[in-house]
Design a protein around this nucleic acid. Structure first.
Lengths: 148, 148
DNA sequence: ATAAATACTTGAATATTATACGAATAATGA
DNA sequence: TCATTATTCGTATAATATTCAAGTATTTAT
């Protein structure tokens, strides 16, 4: 037993996938070389990566939370720095700087609520958040444009 | 000119991609047949699909909004039905039933604020939302686990 | 503790698929 | 209109995935 699956999951979260040119060519009834050409162009312009979407319950990341954050005054004017730092973690699905009452909106995945609590305690300390609101997902119907 | 790119974008949002077995095999230094075997297992258990992640500014979906929704009383108890209906649209990135003040949290992408306004007006009418709060993304640092 | 069943690993052979190339056609711009 | 650039697409080739079969490890039941 080599325990390859965790490594695959980690790689597939960010990339290591590629388009199925032959299948697309069949689907839209065009020559595969034409599809190939168009995909390469699109990759230059607009495609960041190809990746897997998981049934997160099955990989121990079934607990999903949206976190609204107020930064402390000294960081209020330049939220990007903190946002970039937060974005680096593998459990963070998205980070946005948003309009309204809060500065940041973070979507993250954890194993369970205990795991989440450990993370948020650590994050409040580390990033010196002024205030946070956690919206816990009770049911996920769609994620990353994929219905689950 | 066959205008193939829009079709590709639509297909790539949900699938039509596949893992790069040879590349992964090289990366984690295992035989490609072993990688193949493990991926097939993982697909049965936990992988929903393989898809592309876009630079959404480049495909006319740069405007991103998180929408908090209160449903009308008659729908408050069974939000799933509406949530599933909302999830079907291609511009919807995620739909969650959440804890707290609001019942639904929807993440969606539009071309610009006018496009968004048209959508939200229509949605309020169609789904009979009681109240909504829109959090507009000013800057997206990470989406779908991919830094952008 | 042992045997049987099941799951995982792997190399060799084969089938599929992506990519490179070149020629033809179409679109763009001056 | 003519020249330049972008796109289409068939053929040939290179790369890759998949099948198969055999061996090894792990788990399960008794």
């Amino acid at each position: 037993m080599k325990d390859i699956k965790p490594k695959l999951i980690s790689l597939f979260k960010k990339g290591y996938c590629t388009p199925q040119i032959a299948r697309i060519a069949k689907k839209i009834k065009e020559p595969s070389t034409t599809i190939h050409y168009n995909i390469k162009k699109l990759e230059e312009e607009a495609i960041k990566t190809y990746k897997a979407v998981f049934d997160y319950n099955q990989i121990g990341e079934g607990h999903c939370t949206f976190l609204l954050v107020n930064l402390k005054e000294e960081k209020y004017g330049q939220p990007e720095e903190i946002a970039e730092e937060i974005a680096k973690s593998e459990r963070i699905e998205s980070v946005d700087i948003v309009t309204g009452e809060y500065e940041l909106l973070i979507k993250l995945r954890s194993e369970d609520i205990d795991d989440y609590y450990a993370w948020i305690k650590e994050a409040i300390k580390k990033y010196n958040f002024a205030k946070t609101i956690s919206l816990t997902s009770l049911k996920q119907l769609k994620t990353e444009f994929v219905e689950i």
